[in-house]
């Protein structure tokens, strides 16, 4: 906790993140290149054919969508309970990234579904959960934007994020229950063949580093923006 608070100060964060950012960004680029190379070089699946390659883009996106929401929830908790100064900015910056990963997961899922199921959207349990997650992201961002007072907006968004965090597992469970009730489809990859494992792991690493880099850039931008605003306010007074 003590460690966290030391870097919660915007000034320290700017210094530390400035030093780390080039490494995560370059790492993301390298991992993505390597990952895509693996994806193009692996053989097609005996059942799914080349369609299997969509999964290397789809699965990490879906995982990062959850990672991003978890990050928001943790930051919100830090903000509400410990009044941790930077966590509101961090939570807000993670939201558009999470929404983007969720949208990517949905689109790639639908593209995978067309050849596999014959339709882009068959109300598969996982995709339906992710559609609801996308709406939760949109509501969260809308609440942030709607409240003008920044402190109030941060608190309100944090409360909503935590309510969402409690509710998301329940939503997931209810959608799965609903899916078995109506005998819908499910994305089943079976056990992933060993040839695909390196490609998938590299892509996951790439997505993770990409998220870290973009998140850091988002937080840094918000800090710089606030400083600029304060300067303008100072000049006008």
């Amino acid at each position: 906790m003590q460690f966290l608070f030391r870097y919660a100060n915007p000034h320290n964060f700017m210094r530390l993140s400035g030093a780390v950012l080039p490494f995560t960004a370059i790492g993301a680029a390298l991992a993505l290149t390597a990952g895509l190379y693996f994806v193009f070089s692996v053989p097609p699946d005996y059942q799914q054919g080349t369609t299997v390659k969509i999964l290397f883009i789809h699965v990490p996106a879906a995982i990062m969508a959850m990672v991003a929401y978890s990050s928001i929830a943790v930051c919100s908790l830090l903000s509400l309970v410990w009044r941790h100064p930077l966590s509101d900015t961090a939570a807000r910056a993670a939201a558009p990234l999470g929404a983007m990963f969720t949208a990517m997961g949905l689109i790639t899922g639908a593209l995978w579904g067309k050849p596999m199921w014959g339709a882009y959207w068959v109300w598969d349990a996982r995709l339906t959960s992710f559609l609801l997650l996308l709406f939760i992201y949109l509501g969260y961002m809308a609440l942030w934007n709607a409240i003008e007072d920044e402190i109030k907006a941060a608190r309100a968004a944090a409360i909503l994020a935590l309510v969402g965090a409690v509710n998301i597992p329940i939503i997931k469970f209810s959608v799965e229950w609903w899916n078995t009730l109506h005998q819908g489809e499910t994305i089943t990859t079976g056990k992933l063949a060993a040839v695909y494992v390196p490609a998938l792991l590299t892509m996951m690493l790439a997505y993770f580093l990409l998220f870290l880099s973009l998140w850091t850039i988002g937080i840094r931008t918000a800090i710089v923006e606030r400083r600029a605003r304060n300067l303008m306010k100072g000049a006008s007074q």
Binding site: I136, G139, A146, K152, L160, N167, I171
Partner: peptide, 23 residues
Amino acid sequence: SLTLSLKRGGLILPLIILPLLAP
């Protein structure tokens, strides 16, 4: 309660509540 200070809270309220009511 989250939208109580908003003039147009009636528009944003369904957006944040309906996904949570899916279950």
